[in-house]
Amino acid sequence: MKVEDSKIQISKIRTFEHRKIENTKMKNWWKFVTVALLLYSVTMGFLGEVPRLAILNESIRNLYFHVPMWFGMLAILAVSVVYSIKYLNNPTLRNDIIAKEAANVGILYGILGLLTGMVWARFTWGAWWVNDPKLNGAAIGMLIYFAYLVLRSSFAEQQQRARISAVYNIFAFVTLVPLLFILPRLTDSLHPGNGGNPGFGAYDLDSNMRLIFYPAVLGWIGLGIWILNLRVRLENLKFRFYENA
């Protein structure tokens, strides 16, 4: 009798776990899409046909890596601000952790964007760093988020830290927007599409590059959200571990 009971118990647990796995499989479809998009855009980015242009030469392929970093950074930082606003409305630990980790992933993407951009600038404009409004805007944006992390580390109490850094996060994002979107359009810039330069559409007459560029943007945003997801889960586990220890 007892043995049968325990068998039923075990089979119940098994079906429960099975269902859980099924659920997570259904929930994780976007990770497969991300991997597919990245594999496609990276292979096609290195091997596909690109327009032959003077100065740019093969470095035009950096479009598939450099520009998606900035799209990814803005998307992830927007997530960070949304969760900061959510925290002010509904102060839970989860909202705070997501806001902080999203800022971290945004900084990672920003640094990668700066590095890929510096390599590109070296081979097309001739210097690692030029006095360009977009470069300066990106650097100041990085400073804002480093300041956010410094601010976070200067509070000992969790709730105070979460609320005050949420306030700064929202305030900083609002002042970052004119910096990244309005200023480069007013002044001369070496970037395509600014200060009288033709946009990238002019180089890409047959729209073949778009077929790789847009999947690359989506893929890198997806990867950022995946990293964010993992980091949030890790932080949650850490918090639970130290809370109960």
């Binding site: 944006g141 400073l143 300041a147 601010l151 200067s154 306030v167 305030f171 900083a172 910096l179």
Partner: peptide, 27 residues
């Protein structure tokens, strides 16, 4: 003004004030 309100809550507020405000005021 808002940045000074934020910095006033933190432990080491005078250094923090500069760090927080310079990037915000740059544009």
């Amino acid at each position: 003004t808002l940045v000074s309100g934020i910095a006033a809550k933190a432990a080491n507020s005078s250094a923090l004030m500069a760090v927080l405000s310079f990037p915000v005021i740059a544009p």
